[in-house]
Amino acid sequence: MFIPLLNKPVDTLRPAGSAISPSDWSILSNHWYPVAIARELLDAPLAVTLLDVDLVLFRGTDGSASAAIDACPHRHVRLSIGKVVDGQIVCPFHGLHFNQDGRCTYVPALGPRNNLPPSYKVRTFEVRERYGLLWTCIGEQPLEDVPLLPLIAKVPADELDYLAPEIWPVSAARQVENFIDIAHLPYVHAATLGGDQAAPIKPGRIEQQPDGVLMRANYVETNHGIRHCAYTYRVVLPFAIEFKVEVEGDADFMLESCDLPSPISAHQCKVFQILRYGGSREERAAMCGGLAMVNREDMVVLGAMRIPDLPLDQHHEIHLPVDNISNAYRGRLRDLGLGR
């Protein structure tokens, strides 16, 4: 009922109840993650969670987005249930106004005072708009920029489709591994992609890159006729994927996408997916619907995973030759200092 007298306030952003270890949190917090589709942040504030930290997004008078801790420092009511007035977020409890820098500019109960103390503030974070998404970083030493995704960087906006973001019941790292795992395709996605469950699957060709790992692999889809596909996965550390599909004998086929799981917590992520598909508006909508179905198939299986944490020590699991991409990805996560 009460905060004990001996419990002094601490200035640590990582919540005490976070299941992400302090060392992993410190590393992950310095990366940039998508937190919203840019066009969906309009006149009202938007609540999001990143690495167990509750944030509120809002737009200033110039239209740029900001992120702040989703709690008024006065009585800790969520700012996200308030409103935005003249580019400032207003607490719904006592009407305190906070600008994009987090400074409190107006307290109705104090009248028209302009000399509010510096302690009247809420912590804010920079937001960058890139690839049609809003990205933020909450670490003390943020990386210079958001992940480089050349597959979609220069594509006209009207050629891109955005699947509705969904919350997956696994960590961002588990979601990445699932996306790049080709051995599960004929089983989990038998109804959508198809494939011969009895046919051996050859490991892909791995290429290490400065910012991640690239793999090229072949797969035969069977649910849209027999399609001999070349899959290219480019994993950008820590949690971003560029994916490209090429179909043998069909030079006009074009499917490119980005899979971007944003870590809500140790065992949940919000997945943003951007799709570029060569086809009519109706065909693009159908492809988005098909990929959404693929996601649902994945979530059913991943939700049954008994060990939610991703092992970075290879001795925790058995491994197949086709797991080479996962093993390469885990090695790069270890290189970041994670799991220590």
Rank of each mutant, 00 (worst) to 15 (best):
M1L: 13
F2K: 14
L5Y: 12
K8T: 10
V10M: 09
S18Y: 10
P22T: 14
W25K: 02
Y33R: 05
P34T: 12
A36M: 11
L41V: 15
A44T: 11
A44G: 08
P45F: 09
T49M: 03
V53Q: 00
V53H: 08
D54K: 15
L55S: 15
L57V: 07
L57K: 07
G60E: 04
D62R: 11
A68S: 11
P73R: 07
P73V: 05
H74E: 07
H76M: 14
L79Y: 02
S80E: 05
V84D: 06
D86S: 12
I89C: 09
C91L: 04
C91Q: 04
F93I: 12
F98Y: 14
G102Q: 06
V107W: 02
V107I: 15
L110G: 00
P118E: 05
K121H: 12
V122L: 03
E129T: 11
R130W: 07
W135P: 00
C137L: 04
E140W: 03
Q141I: 08
P142K: 03
L143T: 10
D145Y: 02
V155E: 11
A164D: 14
A164K: 14
P165T: 08
P165D: 08
P169G: 05
Q175R: 10
V176G: 09
N178V: 00
N178T: 04
I180D: 01
D181M: 01
H184L: 03
L185T: 15
P186N: 03
Y187P: 05
A190R: 15
A191I: 05
T192P: 14
T192M: 03
T192W: 06
T192V: 13
L193M: 14
L193N: 04
D196I: 08
K202S: 14
G204Y: 00
Q208L: 13
Q209H: 14
P210L: 10
G212K: 00
M215F: 00
E221L: 10
T222F: 04
T222M: 00
N223M: 08
G225D: 13
I226F: 03
Y233N: 12
Y233C: 01
R234G: 01
A240P: 04
A240E: 13
I241H: 07
F243W: 05
K244L: 10
K244H: 02
V245R: 15
E248V: 01
F253I: 04
M254V: 13
C258E: 03
P261K: 06
I264H: 03
A266F: 08
H267V: 02
V271W: 06
V271F: 08
Q273L: 07
Y277G: 01
Y277H: 15
G278Q: 15
R281I: 12
E282H: 05
E282G: 03
E283D: 12
A286M: 12
M287E: 13
C288G: 02
G290K: 11
D298A: 00
L302N: 04
A304W: 04
R306W: 08
I307T: 14
P311I: 01
Q314P: 09
I325R: 01
I325H: 04
A328N: 06
R332P: 02
R332L: 08
L333C: 11
D335Y: 05
L338R: 12
G339D: 02
G339L: 02
